[in-house]
Amino acid sequence: MQRIDTAVTHGIWDGQLPVRISIDPTDAKTLASGAILHSHYTFMHRCSYLPLVTESVREVFVKSGVAFTGHDADIWYEYRGVPLKWHYPIGLLHDLLTSQYRGSSPLPWHIIIHFTNFPTDKLIRINAANIIDTPHDSFMSMIKEADYIRNGSIKKLMSLSKQDQTNLWQGLSSHDYDKFWNVNARLVTNDNTIPKYIPLRVYLLDQPVIQEPVAPVDDNLDCEYTLRDILGRMLPEIFPPSLDAPTTEGADNTRKSDASEAVAILHGIVIPIETPILWLSQNCSYPDNFLHIVICR
């Protein structure tokens, strides 16, 4: 059952996104009157979260003349007018908001940093007392939900020692693969039992997130469902359910052309649609234990 492919998990863990960060022009006027502010170029880990990079990004802008004396919890980011949900992994934000490029968007990803006017109607507030508390709770909430989805309880996660639970977040925030995966492997392999359902969320731009109970195998435990099976059930108009085993090449070609429009993106990669969902969940989930799959049409 345990099928952790460390080449894959290392690759995902180390995935980075080149990002260009420019200051909002209004903020530049009020906080750095007249100064010419260059964009800041950096790499961000796809599996990380924006509040975890805010401190270092803020330092760069303050050094270059931005008179920001507020709290890091007031800082927020935007891409083409859309405020970036800080509780989404950075890789998911990029994949979702550039989904019209179908996995080959121009890089670096150009986002805007704001130091004022936090949009409380669009973004979840961050507790100013400790900028890490809210993201930490948000992350642990997801990982507990994932455990609940797999097992119908949060028993497995709650049975981890306090230290192990802490190591999950610390491993993520300090980008320490071993610290994180030593604990995470027990969660994603579910102690070698087949999970009841797969922690999976499916995203389409400007539509509510789809989250439904998704079983990894059929009732008789003899057939593993693939990503195609799952998406075919969730979004039959976008992913027409596959026909029975094609008997001729002609039938196969017809099927391919039906589904050729839409692709499923995860970690910036177009995922082969015949991948078994259980393998995908164990190896390609984000650190919050969810598969966050973006559909590009």
């Binding site: 509780h87 109607d121 979840i124 507030r125 909430s141 507990k144 609940y148 509510p208 989250q211």
Partner: peptide, 25 residues
């Protein structure tokens, strides 16, 4: 008892904007 805030913010599942919610766990 599962160490989650009893009340906190979350994206509204349909509207996609922040709402407070009572944690169901």
């Amino acid at each position: 008892e599962y160490d989650m805030p009893v009340v906190s913010q979350k994206d509204h599942p349909i509207l996609g904007i922040p709402f407070y919610f009572i944690h169901p766990c």
